[in-house]
Computed example of a mutant assay.
Amino acid sequence: MTVHTIETKAAFDEAVKNHSVVIVDAFATWCGPCKAIAPIVAKLSDEEQFKDVYFAKIDVDDLPELSQELGITAMPTFVAFKGGELSGKVVGANPGAIQKLVVDQL
């Protein structure tokens, strides 16, 4: 798997509609903790147990309306969707909490 970059609101809507579980990493290019956590999220996306999870990331500066809609107030924020519905959120670069968020969606 991989972490997919979502560049439009339409692409986000399509991802949530077409995948049963979506984990969205809301980041900013200038955010140090975002850069630090990115390789850990990429590693999670490669794990066999998470093969059915669609990992995505959005740049909050490029998609401000979507970021506002998702309630992003700090970066990084990880938002989970299951069956098209918001099902969890983790604020901050906390590897354990992010992994738990993903596991809880299965």
Rank of each mutant, 00 (worst) to 15 (best):
F12K: 06
K100M: 11
T29N: 15
D13L: 07
W30K: 15
E14R: 09
V102Y: 00
I40R: 03
F50D: 02
G92R: 06
A74L: 13
E48N: 02
S67K: 05
S87M: 07
G84P: 01
N94C: 09
P64Q: 14
L86I: 05
I58M: 14
D25A: 15
K100L: 12
Y54N: 00
K9H: 13
K82Q: 04
K51L: 10
E47L: 04
N18A: 05
V41M: 08
V79Q: 10
L106V: 09
A10M: 06
V103T: 07
D59I: 08
D59E: 15
I98N: 03
G32Y: 14
T73H: 14
V21F: 02
I23C: 01
E47T: 01
I23A: 00
D46E: 08
N94T: 09
E14I: 01
V53T: 00
P76I: 07
K43L: 01
E65Q: 08
K9Q: 13
I98H: 08
M1I: 10
G96F: 01
E7L: 11
K82E: 10
A42Y: 09
P76G: 11
E47M: 03
T77W: 07
D46S: 15
G71D: 11
A42M: 11
D46R: 10
L101D: 04
K43C: 02
V90M: 12
K89S: 12
G84L: 01
A10N: 08
Q99R: 03
E69R: 14
L70N: 07
G71T: 13
T5N: 11
V103Y: 11
T5K: 11
P76L: 06
L44T: 00
S20P: 03
I37S: 10
A74I: 13
V3A: 01
L44E: 01
E65W: 02
G88V: 11
A38R: 06
L63M: 12
T77N: 12
G96W: 03
T77R: 07
D25V: 15
V16Y: 04
D13R: 10
Q68I: 09
M1K: 06
V79S: 10
G83C: 03
V103W: 05
A10Y: 02
E69N: 10
V24L: 09
I58T: 14
V102L: 00
V103Q: 09
T73K: 15
L63W: 03
T5C: 06
F78H: 05
G71L: 09
A10S: 09
I98W: 05
P33F: 15
V102K: 00
K100Q: 15
F55G: 00
I40L: 06
D46I: 12
E69F: 13
V3T: 00
D104T: 12
V22K: 03
E7N: 05
N94L: 04
N18L: 07
E14S: 04
Q68W: 08
S87W: 05
A10F: 06
D52A: 03
V53K: 00
K100G: 12
V91G: 14
D25L: 13
V41E: 04
W30P: 14
E47V: 03
I6M: 06
A15C: 10
F50C: 02
N94Y: 12
V91T: 15
K17L: 01
V24Y: 12
F27T: 07
D62P: 13
G83L: 01
A36P: 11
V103E: 13
